[in-house]
Structures are given as structure tokens and as C-alpha cells.
């Protein structure tokens, strides 16, 4: 029985290995290879000697963390609010959350300029109301990147969170209330722990996606917020140093895997 199931997915596995995994291995292997010399660590040494690329990586992590936090702060209450809606309103809310998926990331990103730019809706409103004399710089800085990334990635957090939340039986909260728990205790001791696995998974997903973001930081960050994917683009397409790009990618992959391993550990501990 089991072997027939395997033969059914075998072609897919072969496709995955050859079309996906081998090229990645080849890409990662590049960093250890030098023309005429064979195995080498010079590309990693180069990273340590000129740590500017590592600093870009660090900067990327920091921005990704901030954007992920912003996403959680917006996404969690949003998903919770959607849980409480009636069927029709809930459908509309889901559609509104998912809608950005259907719009090109470029269009979405430029739309923020119309809203938050120096001459954008928000700044014109603020100045018209006399709240500020000069436009507030929402864009072309880390704030802009954070807003943009949070917007683009929000569905990745909200949808799994919402799915987990609607599975929580209302009677659990009623039971907690009848046992004498005040609303705050009900939230932190009953509701929140039950959403935690989905929250952790969504947060991890968003964080990893943030690490690889390309378009949004380039446009909403005004090019002032160096991110690792932009650097990789330069190293692959402008000055072809694929070996260097490969070394950076390897470090990025390891960091991502470490974060994932930490998450798995926490998850297993929580469900043990």
C-alpha cells in the first residue's frame, strides 16, 4: 500500500529534486569553488575581511524583525476581529485582506506613494488640518519599508491566524468565564495559547519572506534601506560575483534554518 503511494508521488519528487534542490545545492556549492584552485574558503574569508556585506545582512534581519512585529501588532487584532464577524461581513473582510494578492506588488507599492508621499493624501490632510507645516516623511526610510512590507505580507499572517481562531470553540471562553476568569485572564490563559501555534507559524513565514524582500524596500525605502536581496541582485547581475553571492546566500539560509529549528523546538516543547 505504502509503496504504491510512493510510486504515485515519485515523479513529483524527481521534479522537485532536479528542478529545485540540485540547482540550489549547485548555487550553494559555488561559494566553495574557485577556478583552477578547487575547494576554497576565500569567499567566506572575503566576507569576514570586508564585513560590509554582513552588515547589510544584519540590517536586513533588523528590518525583517521590525516589519514582522508590525505585522503581528496589526494582524492579530484584525484576525480576531474577523473571527467575531457574521458570515457575510466575514467573507467581505477576508476578501479585503486577500485582495492585495490579486494586485501586482509593484502597483501596491506605488499606491503607498499616492497615500503616504510628501504630496500624498495623508500629508495633504495633515497640512490642511494645520497639524504640521512640512510634510511628514512616511516614505523613503525604514518606516516606509516597514509599512510596505507589513501591507504586502499581512495576508500571510492573518489567514492562518484567522483559520486557527475560528476553530476555537466559543464555549471554552464561556467555560473560563463561568469558572470565574476575568476577560484578561480568559484571553491570556485560554484564547492566546490556543492561537499561539498559528501565530508562531505565521510570524516565521512572514519573517522569512521579509528576509527575501526586493521590490518594496527598493521603492518605498527610496533605496536608503539596504536589504540583502538587492545586494544579491547586484552581485549576480551587475558585477558577476556569483561565488560571493553564493556565500552570502548560504549564510542567509543557515540563519533561516536556525530560526526554523528554534521554532520547532519551542513548538515541540509547547505540545509535549
Amino acid at each position: 500500500m505504502r509503496s504504491s503511494g510512493f510510486s504515485f508521488i515519485a515523479p513529483l519528487l524527481v521534479l522537485m529534486v532536479f528542478a529545485f534542490n540540485l540547482p540550489i545545492l549547485y548555487m550553494l556549492g559555488l561559494a566553495f569553488w574557485s577556478k583552477g584552485q578547487g575547494f576554497t574558503l576565500e569567499h567566506y574569508e572575503g566576507l569576514v575581511e570586508a564585513p560590509v556585506y554582513l552588515r547589510v545582512l544584519g540590517n536586513t534581519m533588523r528590518i525583517a524583525l521590525i516589519a514582522t512585529l508590525a505585522n503581528v501588532i496589526i494582524g492579530y487584532p484584525l484576525a480576531h476581529w474577523m473571527r467575531g464577524l457574521q458570515n457575510r461581513a466575514r467573507l467581505i473582510a477576508i476578501a479585503l485582506v486577500v485582495l492585495p494578492f490579486w494586485v501586482s506588488i509593484l502597483v501596491r507599492t506605488y499606491a503607498w506613494i499616492v497615500v503616504l508621499g510628501n504630496g500624498g493624501l495623508v500629508n495633504r490632510a495633515l497640512m490642511w488640518l494645520g497639524l504640521t507645516d512640512a510634510p511628514v516623511s512616511f516614505l523613503y526610510n525604514e518606516l516606509g519599508v516597514t509599512i510596505g512590507m507589513a501591507n504586502v505580507l499581512l495576508p500571510f499572517l492573518v489567514l492562518p491566524l484567522f483559520a486557527a481562531m475560528i476553530r476555537i470553540d466559543d464555549r471554552l471562553m464561556q467555560a473560563a468565564a463561568s469558572l470565574g476568569a476575568p476577560p484578561r485572564t480568559i484571553f491570556w490563559k485560554v484564547y492566546f495559547p490556543l492561537t499561539l501555534p498559528a501565530l508562531a507559524a505565521g510570524t516565521l513565514l512572514v519573517f522569512i519572506l521579509c528576509l527575501g524582500f526586493y521590490v518594496t524596500p527598493a521603492i518605498l525605502g527610496g533605496g536608503r534601506v539596504p536589504m540583502i536581496s538587492n545586494l544579491l541582485d547586484t552581485l549576480i547581475n551587475q558585477i558577476p560575483r556569483w561565488e560571493q553571492a553564493s556565500a552570502i546566500s548560504t549564510i542567509l539560509l543557515i540563519v533561516t534554518l536556525l530560526i526554523f529549528a528554534a521554532y520547532r523546538r519551542l513548538d515541540r516543547k509547547a505540545s509535549a
Binding site: 470553540d169 467555560a175 463561568s178 469558572l179 470565574g180 476568569a181 476575568p182 490563559k189 495559547p193 490556543l194
Partner: peptide, 28 residues
């Protein structure tokens, strides 16, 4: 509900799935 000091048992049990039996009973 919190102020009434009532023991309530649901048909669906409504046990807290993320807590052990003891933790469930310790909750109130």
C-alpha cells in the same frame, strides 16, 4: 458569569486542550 460562582459543565466538555487534566482543574 465571573461574579456568580457557578460550576458549569457543557455537553462538549469544553476542556482547555492546551492544559493537562490537573491544570484544567487548577484553573478556577
Amino acid at each position: 458569569a465571573q461574579e456568580r460562582n457557578i460550576g458549569l459543565v457543557f455537553q462538549s466538555y469544553a476542556l482547555f486542550p492546551h492544559m493537562t487534566v490537573l491544570e484544567n482543574v487548577l484553573f478556577p
